[in-house]
Amino acid sequence: MKKLIASIVAGAALATAGVSAASAGTLEDVKAKGFVQCGVNPSLIGFGVADEKGEWSGIDVSFCRAVASAIFGDPTKVKFSPLNAKERFTALQSGEVDLLSRNTTWTMSRDSSLGLMFVGVSYYDGQGFMVRKSLGVSSALELSGAKVCTQTGTTTELNLADYFRSHNMPYEVVAFEKNEEVLQAYEAGRCDAYTTDASGLYAERLKLTNPDDHMILPEIISKEPLGPAVRQGDDKWFTVVKWTLFALINAEELGLTKANIDEKKTADNPEIKRFVGVEGDFGTGIGLTNDWAYNVIKGVGNYGEIFDANVGPSTKLGIARGLNNLWSKGGIQYAPPIR
């Protein structure tokens, strides 16, 4: 009996001690287990969505694959955790996922009180409104008195309140837990408008019975810089993820694509030589191999390719590059150089 109690107490002590023990660096953990655990959106076309065969696609999903390519040279060494808006931060904080790549807005409070670190901006977005064309509204400023449907647990509720308050317009917000119900309620006519990030509106509009009966209003009422995030306090992992994003953007600037990187690898361009790891020692400096950036592009293509394949003008979403174009082409996507 005494032995039993003693062992229970000892076991409990061990269990709690285990909780407090700090884990080793995320990069080492990831290398040891052989894959990246990536938190993504399960149902946002163009950003994170799984098809009927369980194949994931989207910008955020491609970013997860890019990180896996950088570490393992293999874009398939990634496992996805579908997360809803409310679960996502806890999943990252608790270590359930190594990386959160789920159309998440970079805000100060998330940096300051959630223990997160955003590595950069993978998509410059902004909150917009979708309405029925039959409403005869052409600007969000005409939405005074409107009933607005949205998803709870996001920054959109706050932006919505700020926008209507600052323009002195009354409104009513109907906030659902999941996208699916927001869309159903909007389609049933419970709301005059549907609000979320503009990219999301384009994606959700496609799910409506008659997408052409609905339009997205021109106003963008907020800045929504979406980007991947990691836990605070692990600089090594943060650096790896951050430079994976920069590599994607730099590759587009250098004209390196999935198709031509093998042939350009041998080109006599010092910038490209550094990028693919023929010159310099950049990869080992962040705990990877020197051909890490080559692997990223070989695995998933450059930023422009990912954008075009998932949300670009040739896809169903048909979103123009706009702000997300390279700084040299009229947008604001810009990455520090690899040198």
Binding site: K86, Q93, S109, S113, G153, A175
Partner: peptide, 14 residues
Amino acid sequence: VSVGGTVLNQTGQA
């Protein structure tokens, strides 16, 4: 739960 969820998301105080 609904209102608390919004508060949780805005403040992060899970």
